[in-house]
Design a protein around this nucleic acid. Structure first.
Lengths: 108, 108
DNA sequence: AAGAAGGTTCGACTGAAATGGAACTGTCGA
DNA sequence: TCGACAGTTCCATTTCAGTCGAACCTTCTT
């Protein structure tokens, strides 16, 4: 796991931080897209996720998600491949992410 | 249902607002206490919920929860009895509240 | 080596949220 | 009727979050 980045350990995640990270429409949309990603598809990278916006803004939202422990980003070449930390979140707060995702309109 | 207050209808609740309301430790503690309330017990009122703090601050947090649709407060005499809108929230976002509550340390 | 591409960081600005004191409203008890 | 009591509202202050341009760092390409 050569992730380049620091990611918080599951044990040190906090529920308020996670809920806060998920409480923004833009971030919720990003999470929805990550959740819709299927193995075998071309990996989602920063630039390809969320609505159109300046890259510094997008980077900010992705940072909030990453630091809350919701997403993971792994460097690959000059891109960063994004993924949801589904299993880890589910281990810590069973059913939480699923319940949230069920309330997010799935991306077109 | 003589609620004195305006409460948003389930249909008009938004996921980001609910998650935001739940993303604060103080409010999460309040919600945990409301969830622990059992039928037959003396009703929970504003003053008896959450950590010690000025009443204007408490009133603020309760307003956030109420307006997000998480709680309901019904006037009774000079107090306001608080309750969780469990069933309604569960109808709208099944499993969400339960998952959150499972992650909240239950009150002593 | 030079430049483009993908992201991060920094700094500034703006708007929103948290906090708490003080004044106010409505209800109850004496 | 006069407090006392439960809450809300108003207001000021401070802190935090969102937005975005500009500069920067890496990696890839040529």
């Amino acid at each position: 796991m050569s992730s380049t980045y620091w990611h918080p350990d599951v044990a040190e995640l906090s529920l308020p931080s996670v809920l806060f990270a998920l409480s923004d429409p833009v971030r919720l949309e990003i999470v929805g897209q990550l959740a819709a990603w299927r193995d075998g598809e071309v990996p989602l990278v920063c630039a390809s996720v969320g609505p159109d916006m300046p890259k510094s803004t997008r980077s900010h939202h992705l940072k909030v998600l990453r630091e809350a422990g919701v997403t993971r980003s792994v460097q690959s070449g000059r891109e960063r491949q994004l993924s949801l930390r589904r299993d880890e979140l589910d281990e810590r707060w069973p059913g939480l992410l699923s319940a949230v995702l069920a309330g997010v309109p799935s991306p077109a």
